[in-house]
Each structure stands twice: as structure tokens, then as C-alpha cells.
Nucleic acid binder design. Structure first.
Length: 452
DNA sequence: TCTGGGGTCCTAGGACCC
DNA sequence: TCTGGGGTCCTAGGACCC
């Protein structure tokens, strides 16, 4: 049984501070400055911090409130996923031009199997030169984003390697040196070992990978469970023969939202859940999926999180069906203390057999109107999602001043900085939020990728 | 008014079936 | 007077990842 490959032929690529780097690329005034992308509302968290912001201790998953306290001078932006997706698509296309076996892990990360790349051999000097060239080509296709790359004899070690010289670095682990590198490290370097597992291991005196490797598999299983015990037993020995798998299938589709103020009105909760069901259904139809299990997620005022699910006899992608089920699941829950998050998801997915290629994918079915939507509109007090209309960072265009982006908004005023990736930092001007000469600007739709 | 949003995988118990 | 033993499906919750 193969434990690892004899050569360093798995590559892991990770774009550095990805969301923040895209913002700095497109907004020249932010280059060299702390930039924080994430939820900008009172309950937001940091998604990505630029390295300048990390110097102040700002980290992913930290609450935005704390990030503001640590680095008040940072630009706080709510994120432009179309731009991130476009950059990601360009990088993934580059990787797929190198090898047919590319496994994206997220927008900013992927494995590449070099055994299927067109290289003369897989010796360390060859893969090193290839990886350095690849990093340069990433910068070319993304107009300047940097990537960190690791190359090793398995997925596990390639991922660890890419972390070692961030940002903008390359690490190749020579075959045969894996254990010497790995064993002194803390167990938390192992993907899948988070705070709960670190604590369990700490209680039996295990802190490093070497100490982990010294534990018997039975003891490990008794502490962390069957699957994780078996996995840790192998990874601690640098044993990993998982294949690079392209085209992993989607297992679930979901939408959730945390509200600035806890919800208490059942009618309002129902109307939100119905809207979310519609969004899930729309996305499912967009990717040709349908599913049998509908799940409602509710986070209460005290952060306890509940889920309730119900499985249909046959798959659906219809708004009305998903909405009806979600609403009936909500009906069984006690939400009297207040609700901070609501979400709707569908799992148990099957490919959608498209009966008629020319059928339009709209879904006009009506949701039974037992709970009419509260009169008027999204900004009902307490129901406003964390991201408001003029979100910081959003691209805008002004009738006479041209293109810029939203610096901030409040008190009926939007502040815009006029600049683009190509034009130097420009003036900052303020407008009334309802100024008709100001509009959201969207980049031209990217070419849909060839497959999928 | 600590604690996002979109996912994946695992566990454990009960139902149900052979 | 006790009580088998799988396998699969479903549900709820939790850990973890980016």
C-alpha cells in the first residue's frame, strides 16, 4: 500500500490575503495600507486582513468590532465577490492549463497533480523551477496578485509547505525529509485539528506531531473518534495517499443571514425564510441541482444553534416546496427569546434531469400566502442584514466624475473615492444616498468557464 | 450589546428491514 | 421474564475549513 509518493509531485497554491489583495490591486490608495474585508456591521467578522492589518494583530474570524479597536485606521470593506471570483477563475484556468488534475478547495486555494503535468521529470530542481514560474504566471493573469506555493509528496505535506514561506513564497519538501520537518511542529498544523482537538490532545500531554505519532491508534480513537483517530495516526507519520480529485460534486446549497438586531416577530421570520428558500431554489436551478432534504437553521439570541430538517420522497428545486417545508420547520421551534440568524439549505442533491433544454429556469410558482409579507421593504427596523445598500468597497460610477468606490455611508450620505486600478488615487466626494447621478457599477460579465 | 457565510465530514441514536 | 446482528436511512449537533 502506497503511503506517499516517491517524488514531490503534489502542488498546493494559496493566494496571499486574497480578498484584501484584490482590493489593494483595484484601489491604488489602499496599497501598502491596512485593509480588512468582512462584515462591516455590528455583528460582522473579519474575512481577510491584509498583511499591513495583520501587523496590528487583526486575524480572520475576529469580530470586526475587535479589529476596529486594534486597527482603527484600516479600510473596512464588505467584499466584492464578483471581482474575487473573476481573479479565482483566471488562476484556476492557469492551473488547469498545467495539469488536468486540479482540485480547488476554495476561491483562493487549489491542489495540482504534477504527475499529470507536462514536466520532463519530477526531481526537486525541476518542480522548483516549475513552481517559481507558475507563481510569476499567477501574477500575470491576476494583474499582480501573489501566491504562496508548496510542493511535496502528498496533499497533506504540500499544504503544510505552502504555509511555510508566506506571503509570496515557495517551499519544496524533498522526498525523505518529511518526518524531520513535520515532527517538531505543533499538532495544530494538521488540517482538521482545530481548537477542540488541540485541547483534547493537550489533556493527554500531546503538543507536537512527534508526540502524536507516539500515541497508539486505539488510544487516539478513544480520544477523538474513529475517523479522526485513524486519520491522525497516519498523518502524524506523514502517511497520506489521497488523490487529487477534480470536479468534486456539490453536496448542499444554503443561504443564511445574521441580523443586526435579534428578530422577535414570527411573521417577519417567516417572510425571511420564504425569501431565503427562493434564493436557494434559484441557485439550485442555476446549477442544475435538486435535492430531497430541506434544513432550517436558527441561531438564538444566546448563540445556541438549532437545525431542523425534513426529507421529501423526491428531489425538488421549487421555491414553493422548499419554502413550505422551511416554514413548517420554523413553526415547530420556540423563538421567543429572539433569533440572531436564520438560514435555509437543501442537501441530498441529485443532478437535475433537464427535460427540455429550452425550458426557462424561472420558477413562477406561488408560495401559499398564509403569512403575507410585512408591508414594505427591506429596511424594516431590526431586519436589515449586515450589508447595506451602499456597502463599503462597492464599485460605483458617477455621471460626471466617473468610476470610484464607496468609502463609507451613513446619515443619508455616501462617500466615494474616485479611482480605479489604472487611475491614481483620486478625489473623495460625498453624495446624498439617493443622488440619481450615482449608481452601482458592475464589471462586464466574465466569460463563462468552458466546463461547469 | 463578542462570535459571518458557505461549505464538508463525522457521530450517535432511533427507525426500519432482512 | 433476556436482549441477535447487520445494513441503511434519517435527524440533530458539532468540529472544522476558507
Amino acid at each position: 500500500m502506497t503511503r506517499v509518493r516517491a517524488q514531490a509531485s503534489v502542488l498546493h497554491l494559496d493566494l496571499d490575503a486574497f480578498f484584501a489583495a484584490v482590493e489593494q490591486r483595484d484601489k491604488p490608495s489602499l496599497r501598502g495600507k491596512p485593509v480588512i474585508v468582512g462584515g462591516v456591521g455590528g455583528r460582522g467578522v473579519v474575512s481577510t486582513a491584509s498583511y499591513e492589518a495583520r501587523a496590528y494583530g487583526v486575524r480572520s474570524a475576529m469580530s470586526t468590532r475587535e479589529a476596529r479597536a486594534r486597527c482603527p485606521q484600516a479600510a473596512f470593506l464588505s467584499g466584492r465577490f464578483d471581482a474575487y471570483r473573476a481573479a479565482s477563475t483566471a488562476v484556476m484556468a492557469l492551473l488547469r492549463s498545467c495539469s488536468p488534475l486540479v482540485e480547488p478547495l476554495s476561491l483562493d486555494e487549489a491542489f495540482v497533480d504534477l504527475e499529470r503535468a507536462d514536466l520532463p521529470d519530477l526531481e526537486v530542481p525541476t518542480v522548483t523551477a516549475f513552481a517559481e514560474d507558475l507563481r510569476l504566471r499567477v501574477q500575470e493573469v491576476t494583474d499582480g496578485l501573489t501566491a504562496s506555493v508548496g510542493v511535496a509528496s502528498s496533499k497533506f505535506l504540500a499544504k503544510i509547505a505552502s504555509e511555510l514561506r508566506k506571503p509570496d513564497g515557495l517551499t519544496v519538501i524533498s522526498p525523505g525529509t518529511e518526518i524531520a520537518l513535520l515532527h517538531p511542529m505543533r499538532v495544530s498544523v494538521i488540517p482538521g485539528v482545530g481548537p477542540a482537538t488541540v485541547e483534547r490532545l493537550r489533556r493527554i500531554g500531546v503538543h507536537t506531531v512527534a508526540e502524536l505519532a507516539a500515541i497508539g491508534q486505539e488510544e487516539l480513537v478513544s480520544i477523538v473518534g474513529k475517523a479522526q483517530g485513524a486519520s491522525l495516526h497516519q498523518l502524524a507519520r506523514a502517511e497520506d495517499d489521497r488523490a487529487v480529485v477534480p470536479d468534486r460534486e456539490t453536496k448542499s446549497v444554503s443561504v443564511e443571514s445574521t441580523y443586526e438586531h435579534d428578530l422577535t416577530d414570527r411573521r417577519q421570520m417567516e417572510s425571511i425564510v420564504v425569501k431565503q428558500a427562493g434564493e436557494v431554489a434559484r441557485r439550485m436551478r442555476g446549477s442544475g441541482l435538486s435535492g430531497r432534504t430541506v434544513t432550517l437553521k436558527v441561531r438564538l439570541y444566546d448563540f445556541t444553534t438549532l437545525s431542523r430538517s425534513s426529507t421529501l420522497p423526491a428531489p425538488t428545486e421549487e421555491t414553493a416546496t422548499i419554502a413550505r417545508l422551511a416554514r413548517s420547520l420554523l413553526a415547530d421551534l420556540d423563538t421567543s427569546g429572539g433569533v440572531r440568524l436564520l438560514g435555509v439549505g437543501v442537501s441530498g442533491l441529485a443532478d437535475w434531469v433537464q427535460e427540455d433544454l429550452f425550458a426557462d429556469d424561472s420558477d413562477d410558482s406561488e408560495v401559499p400566502e398564509e403569512a403575507p409579507e410585512p408591508a414594505s421593504e427591506p429596511d424594516q427596523a431590526g431586519a436589515r442584514p449586515s450589508d447595506v445598500h451602499w456597502a463599503p468597497g462597492m464599485d460605483v460610477i458617477h455621471a460626471t466624475d466617473g468610476r470610484g468606490w464607496v468609502w463609507g455611508s451613513g446619515k443619508g450620505v455616501v462617500t466615494v473615492r474616485f479611482e480605479t486600478a489604472e487611475t491614481p488615487p483620486g478625489p473623495v466626494r460625498s453624495f446624498r444616498v439617493d443622488d440619481p447621478s450615482l449608481a452601482r457599477w458592475r464589471p462586464p460579465a466574465p466569460e463563462p468557464p468552458e466546463d461547469q
